[in-house]
Design a protein around this nucleic acid. Structure first.
Lengths: 205, 205
DNA sequence: GGAAGCATGTAAAGTGTTACATGATTTT
DNA sequence: AAAATCATGTAACACTTTACATGCTTCC
């Protein structure tokens, strides 16, 4: 900390910014051949990866800069006409970091952040008919989400099967099956509530 | 927009800070009779409400101050010996805001933030045996979570049934059933992968 | 007397969202 | 010629986590 020490002329050591799940999402996509920030955005949207880990372009671009800064990815110019574009590729260090992350054995618990379920937990404050509406809403939301999985996400993820890439499809089916399960579980809850005398009797309260 | 207009000497209008799901979590608990910040922490932990909406005490205390500031809750001193304590109660305005939120018909889509599923989507980068490990890990996590729901969360939530408060228990059972479903779905995936020749053949790679 | 639990706060750093901002190329 | 899409970035704000900080009370 003394200012009299001669400053060694060494190159600035590569800062190693902390990597978080968003970083690994980017590393994984770049590793899979998705080269530009914009293409990453599109890939995330198409496969609805934002369901498991949301990211917007306002995070992607600074994050790419940080990853480059840390030596995990390499950038080269890849203009298209006069329109600039950056093409990124994984460095050895990035490959190592990504595979290490994939192999880690402890999983942080999943987070479910759902305003709908939060509301449901407080539904005793509503008149029974409104509480029932809430359950119906949640069931419809699950049905809608299942449709989206089957019609949009699974077809995209299955297009990778021919390249020998199977896990995006595995996750797509998992997501769709979950939504179907949730819809039927919520439908059962609906029936249960409707058939409850205390509940049904005060239906117009 | 002219600067020559005389400024009316109206009293500073009560700031109405924007309410977010965390705010409603607090309002809902205070409404249910949970009076202090510390008691809110405990209630959230015991019922694992943090599964649907995570909140720590570093958010709770400033948030309570904001809600009081906005006139949604009223504070009174409630010391215990020499140890200070604040007791909050809902104002009419807070009651209205809470019920309005509960009755809103559009639900933001649920967010499923899960590093485990994010990893699974990239599992093609792992040797098959490691990918299988990941599935096993996720299944065990679900089994563990189910146990916690059945042993810790459901008993607490069912203790409210005698007070006529049923929805915490509804949500507890929903959570437990979901974990059970996830565990069996992941077990099926495990079997499917093990019986896949391409996959099983390279088990030691 | 010490540990565990009760009780409340702040500071700093990190993460995430929305809006602002710009400009090129391709499609209709 | 206009609209859609490609492409990249920044600024301001909001939200979240982790660590720091303090002091009382109850139980062992």
């Amino acid at each position: 900390m003394t200012s009299s020490l001669p400053i060694p002329p060494s190159p600035p050591p590569a800062r190693k910014p902390r990597l978080n799940p968003s970083s690994f999402l980017l590393l994984g996509l770049i590793r899979a051949g998705v080269q530009s920030g914009y293409a990453i955005r599109r890939a995330i949207a198409q496969m609805r990866m934002d369901i498991f880990w949301a990211t917007t372009h306002a995070q992607i671009y600074p994050q790419l800069a940080r990853l480059e800064d840390g030596g995990y990815i390499a950038r080269r110019d890849d203009p298209h006409g006069d329109r600039q574009r950056n093409a990124y590729s994984l460095t050895e260090s990035g490959e190592r970091a990504f595979l290490t992350w994939l192999g880690v054995s402890e999983q942080p618990p999943m987070e479910l952040r759902d305003e709908g379920l939060l509301r449901l937990g407080f539904a005793d404050a509503l008149p029974p008919a409104r509480a029932l509406d809430l359950v119906v809403q949640l069931r419809k939301r699950a049905e809608e989400a299942e449709r989206e999985f089957r019609e949009e996400i699974i077809p995209v993820s299955e297009s990778f099967l021919q390249l020998g890439i199977r896990f995006p499809s595995v996750v797509g089916h998992l997501g769709a099956d979950y939504q179907r399960w949730a819809a039927s579980r919520l439908a059962a809850l609906e029936q249960e509530l409707r058939s409850d005398p205390t509940f049904a009797a005060r239906d117009q309260e």
